[in-house]
Design a protein around this nucleic acid. Sequence first.
DNA 1: ATGAAAGCGCTAACAA
DNA 2: TTGTTAGCGCTTTCAT
Lengths: 337, 337
Amino acid sequence: MGVVTSLQVAELAGVSQSAVSRVFTPGASASAKTVEKVKRAAAELGYRPNMMARAMITGKSRIIGLVVAYLDNQFYPLALERLSNALQAKGYHILVFTASNDNDHVARVLQELIDYQVEGIITASVGMSSALTERCADAGIPVVMFNRGQDGAHISSVTSANREGGAKVAEFLLSCGHQNIAHIGGWQGSSTGRDRQLGFSNRLEVAGITPRIVDGMYDREVARAATLDLMDRRSPPDAIFVGNDHMAFAVMDCLRGELGLSVPDDVAVVGYDDVPMASWAAYSLTTMRQPLNRMVDATVDRLMTKIEDKSAPDRAIEIESALIQRQSSRQPKGHDQ
Amino acid sequence: MGVVTSLQVAELAGVSQSAVSRVFTPGASASAKTVEKVKRAAAELGYRPNMMARAMITGKSRIIGLVVAYLDNQFYPLALERLSNALQAKGYHILVFTASNDNDHVARVLQELIDYQVEGIITASVGMSSALTERCADAGIPVVMFNRGQDGAHISSVTSANREGGAKVAEFLLSCGHQNIAHIGGWQGSSTGRDRQLGFSNRLEVAGITPRIVDGMYDREVARAATLDLMDRRSPPDAIFVGNDHMAFAVMDCLRGELGLSVPDDVAVVGYDDVPMASWAAYSLTTMRQPLNRMVDATVDRLMTKIEDKSAPDRAIEIESALIQRQSSRQPKGHDQ
DNA sequence: ATGAAAGCGCTAACAA
DNA sequence: TTGTTAGCGCTTTCAT
């Protein structure tokens, strides 16, 4: 069993144990000769520093906790992958925790993360009460919320400009000549869902239109039921803005499969996120592109900043997003092919 | 900053530091009175044991390393989610590492995992040379390969019965009356891809049919190119078995979108995995169902067994899978609706 | 059942 | 630059 300690390396190399430690500590001082001897001995014994011991002393575990609720919406696994890569490049690693969007559950999970002495926490697809935010701050652990915000709170977050995004969708549907518009929103318990909806309906109201609104809860089944309900009314909508792509696919499946309708001829559908699947031929979904890479970069940047300087100010970062037009929507008026 | 130590709790509770430790150690002995006093003091100070320190001493980090290559194939995020939940329920957590399928890369990642003193390693969608397997064994860290096997190797693995699965698909396509059959295989560098292909072509050969075979590399783009190539030949296939669902979706997109063909009238498509998307109306893909829950359970079980008893034998577990018939394939002969 | 004492493997002053 | 000496916060003998 390969449990080699720095002491054994020291003995073999004929130096002190602390010399070994220095050789394996980035910013430490050691003569070329010592480095040489130690490296050789270490290689021979297959020695590697014990991260746990190091973490305990320095208080730097090099671990970032990631709390995530859903992994069935493709946006999140992709975010996880990118975050992991970006963090790995900086010598950090991700400890994954799954939690439902229940506040108690999140609290428990957060406590465990604190127990693990993680250096930072990223929450994705989960909300946090300000009480929880406080708790982490007390423990001295920086938190960045990914794709969720928290109103007027003392916490860093990275989202796209959801309100503006919702407005852009409204603008677009209006320009396509739609008047009878519905919205299957993201869960109203999430800032993301609320903001998109707000931007959307505010812009529509300016045009004197009040969209029919249902909460899709970020769930395929709920979105499907909402679609069925919407289309069953006296004057069904000819355009539906869906709170995210994940639900939009369900809406399209329902529209085309169950109801035998044509998208976009009978009903136009617009989503939000632009996950890879949105561009697949089977859907070709018009959607707001959330720039994943930039969101990930901003998240990592925010986290690193706070880790290096705990007193750095918290910031709510909003990244602009753009509408990607595909086949699930009609052409805006006055725009020829 | 909430860095409360057991010593502070001990002082407040009027007991020794070791008493505090015992109270927080599951199998330890302490009188009801002591437990009471300590718990009260701990609660007052907000004390929680430092996992890092505990891990260092006991050698039990309660962390499982997960090495994963792709997260764009929906099968893996789902596996990750289930694994995380199952492990969380047992008090373990997942440290995620992403690695390409390059042996050196995997080696580096594995070394980092060993540095972190993880108690076990799960590899998903990545292969491991037996040299790497050895290394982990030397470090005393159990490894379970998920959805990958290693021929005649000294390692635990959990897969579905891929060879048999491939044969089942062949059998099915034959029963539908197909004669001109192609296979866009999973990456041949993976046991999973090889086994499915082997079972498939062996069964077909019995019927005197030699399928045209292309390696799809588990990649949408490669699968698309393969489809284009296959359909461009003099006698294009009327049935394609694709090595996994992820590629099968690309094949269907290409067939229906780019080539304007009908599935299954012109070409039948069968996949492998049965990810949720396979059942969505847009695809309705006939596919082999890999029982994710059972695979996850087996993986966790195997890992726990090896963690508890390092000398437990390694086993290659194969879980049976069944064909799920949907709309992307024709009806087998002699079977009425 | 409890406290004292000895480490786990390492980093970080401190002298030399 | 180097070795010596303390610990980090905890678990674990070992007496009591």
